[in-house]
Design a protein around this nucleic acid. Structure first.
Lengths: 335, 335
DNA sequence: CCTTCGGTTCGAACCGTTTCGATCGACGTT
DNA sequence: AACGTCGATCGAAACGGTTCGAACCGAAGG
C-alpha cells in the first residue's frame, strides 16, 4: 500500500505538504498538481486507521440493533446509511441477541473508537443504565427506552399503539383477548402490555393471566405458545401480538391448527413486514413512523459527533404516535 | 481514555512490559498482577486503531451485500456473524445498491484496512473483474460469480434451480411461461434465464420475448412490469420470478388485478422469505442451502486472513444444488 | 571470583497520518 | 540597503500501540 511518504518522494515535496494538499492547507496550484499526479501514479489512498488514531476517533458509525433479520431494523439501516454516507461516514452493524452479547459488542465498538453509536438497548436495571451512561461516545438510543438514562432517545408511543388496537377489538365485541408479549422488563413490550391492560380495564374487563403469553419477540416461540394456548381449555376470540414476527408465528399456528382468521380468531399486531399485503388475511396493525424516527436519530447523532462539546447538548427525546392500518384480520362479533 | 502509558506509570513498569503482559509475552506473575490491577484501576482498554495501524490490518470483516433488506442477506449475516465473533472479529456491513456505490464502498473499506471482505459483486465486465482482482485484501465472493476472477466463490447452481422449476411447470402443462429477470448481465439472473430457456427449448417451445420481463430484482418494479404484462394482449399461464421479492411483487400485482393464483396464473420463484409459509397461496420455490454456503464462505475467509501467505491458497469454488419446495401456487393444466 | 545463562524488563524505533512552529524566498516599504 | 510581510514549504513531535535487541540480575558452573 502506498503511503503519504511514497507520494511525497515522487512529487519531490515533504509529507506535510502532501497532507496539506489533501486537506485544505495552503499549497500552490503547481505543487498540488504534482502531488495529485504522484498520488494517482502510486495508487495512494489515505490510511483511515492512521487518520483516526491521530484524531482520536474513527469515522465509523455503529448501528446496534437487537436482531437485524427483523425487517424493522432493515428499514432503519437503509435510512441511516443514506444519511451517514452523505456525511462521508460508514455504518458498522453489530447484531446483539440479548443483553449478554450486547456488552461484548459495545466494548468492541468502544475499542474501535467508533465516532458514534445508534443503539437499541436490550438491558434493564440500574447497573445497565449506569453502564450505558458511562460510555463516552456520542450515543442515540432508539426503540427501547432506558428509564433515567441521560441520552437522546427516539421511539414510538407504544402504550398508545397497543391501546388503540385493543380498543378497536373491544369495539368489535371481543372480550377474551390474548396478549403475546416479548421479554418481560423490555421497555416496548411493557408499554404495549400497559396499553392493553389499560384498555381492558377501561372497558371493565379483568385480565386473564392465562391469556398473557410471553414469546420473546421471536416468531417460533410465538408459534409454540400460540399452539399451546389454542390446544388448551381457554380460547380467546382475539390475539394482540406485540410485534410483527410473533404475529406471523401466531397466525401460522392458528392456520396449522385449522382455525380460520378472522372467523375463528382475530389478530392484530404492532409493526409490519415488507409485503405484509400478501399475508392472508391482511393484518390490522399499528405502524411506527420509521423514516421520521430514523432520520431524527441519525441527525441527532451527527450533531453530537460534529459538535465541539457534545456534553453541552442536553439529552433530547422524541416520541411519535403510531398509525393504525386496517386489514381483514378482525371479526366483528356484534353482528 | 486511559492509554498503555497510564497503566505503565501506575504499575511502575515500562510500556513494553504492559504490552507484553497483555499479549503472550514473558512477564513474571507478580508484575502481571500489578499490571492487570493498574489496568482495571484506570479503566484501560487497548486502542484497536493503534493496534491495527501497527499491524497494518484491522480485525474487522466486511460483509458487502447488494441489499441488506432482502432477507436472503439477513440470513447470511446471522451465520457469518456467529463465526466471526467466535474468532474475535466484528462484522461491518455496507450496503451497495448497484455497482456505482459498490466501488465507493469498497474504497472506503480498503482505506479502513479491513481484515477481509465477503462480497456479493454486482458488477460485470473485464474492467470490473480487474478492479476486484487488484484489491489486495483477503476476499471471498458469494452469490454473484465474476467470470475469470481468481477469487474464492460460493454459490448455488442457479441454472439448475430455474430449469427444475420450469420443467415442473411444463410437466403441469404450461406452455406460455413468463420469466421475470433481474438486471441483464448479472450472473445469477443470467444463469436462471439460461435454465429457463434450456428447459423451454428442450420441450420444443420457442421463447416469446414479450414474456421476458426485467425487474432488477426489485419488488416494486416487478409489480409494475407484471401489471403491464397482465393488462396487455398476451397473457401467460405461469410466471417464473427469478428472485423472492420480485415474486411477491408479481403476486401482489396479480391479486390487485383480480387474477387468482394458481387458478388463473401459476407462480414459482427462487429463494424464500422468512414468512413465506403465510403467503397465500403457498409458493413453490427453489431454496439455496444458505447455512452451508455462508459457513463455508466465512471459513475460507478466516483461513485466508490467518494464513501467513494467503496468495499461496489457490482460488476455491463451491457450488451447491438448490432444493425445490412445493407449494400450491401452480395449477395442473392436464386435468 | 569470573563467566555464562535464562528469565525479566527496558528503551527506542516504527506504523501513517496530522499539526504546528520554524524556515525560506520573493516582494513591497521606508 | 535593511526590514517586515506573507505565502509556500518543511521538520519534528505526537497519536497509542508492538516489536526487537540490549541491559539487567541472580543463580549456577568452572
Amino acid at each position: 500500500m502506498a503511503t503519504i511518504r511514497d507520494v511525497a518522494k515522487r512529487a519531490g515535496v515533504s509529507i506535510s505538504t502532501v497532507s496539506a494538499a489533501f486537506n485544505e492547507g495552503r499549497v500552490s496550484d503547481e505543487t498540488k498538481r504534482r502531488i495529485t499526479d504522484a498520488a494517482r501514479a502510486v495508487g495512494y489512498s489515505p490510511n483511515l486507521l492512521a487518520q483516526s488514531l491521530k484524531s482520536g476517533r474513527s469515522r465509523l458509525i455503529a448501528l446496534v440493533p437487537g436482531d437485524i433479520t427483523n425487517p424493522f431494523f432493515g428499514n432503519w439501516l437503509t435510512v441511516i446509511e443514506k444519511h451517514a454516507l452523505a456525511a462521508n461516514r460508514a455504518i458498522i452493524v453489530s447484531n446483539t441477541h440479548g443483553v449478554a452479547r450486547e456488552q461484548t459488542v459495545l466494548e468492541l465498538l468502544k475499542a474501535q473508537r467508533v465516532a458514534g453509536m445508534l443503539i437499541n438497548p436490550q438491558g434493564t436495571g440500574p447497573e445497565y443504565r449506569a453502564y450505558l451512561e458511562a460510555i463516552d461516545v456520542p450515543l442515540v438510543t432508539f426503540d427501547q427506552f432506558v428509564p433515567g438514562l441521560e441520552r437522546d432517545y427516539v421511539g414510538t408511543d407504544n402504550e398508545l399503539a397497543a391501546r388503540m388496537l385493543t380498543e378497536y377489538m373491544l369495539r368489535l365485541g371481543h372480550r377474551q383477548i390474548c396478549f403475546i408479549g416479548g421479554q418481560p422488563g423490555l421497555w416496548t413490550t411493557e408499554r404495549r402490555r400497559e396499553g392493553f391492560v389499560a384498555a381492558m380495564h377501561q372497558a371493565g374487563l379483568p385480565i386473564d393471566e392465562d391469556l398473557m403469553l410471553i414469546a420473546n419477540y421471536e416468531g417460533d416461540v410465538a408459534y409454540r405458545e400460540t399452539t399451546r394456548l389454542l390446544t388448551g381449555p381457554k380460547r380467546p376470540t382475539a390475539i394482540l401480538a406485540s410485534n410483527n414476527v410473533m404475529a406471523l408465528g401466531a397466525l401460522q399456528a392458528m392456520i396449522d391448527l385449522g382455525f380460520r382468521c378472522p372467523q375463528d380468531i382475530s389478530l392484530t399486531t404492532i409493526d409490519d413486514v415488507p409485503w405484509m399485503g400478501l399475508v392472508k388475511p391482511r393484518l390490522t396493525f399499528a405502524i411506527q413512523p420509521l423514516h421520521e424516527l430514523a432520520a431524527v436519530a441519525i441527525k441527532w447523532l451527527l450533531e453530537r459527533i460534529e459538535s465541539r462539546d457534545q456534553a453541552a447538548i442536553p439529552p433530547r427525546r422524541m416520541i411519535l404516535p403510531p398509525k393504525i392500518i386496517l386489514g381483514e384480520s378482525c371479526a366483528d362479533l356484534r353482528v
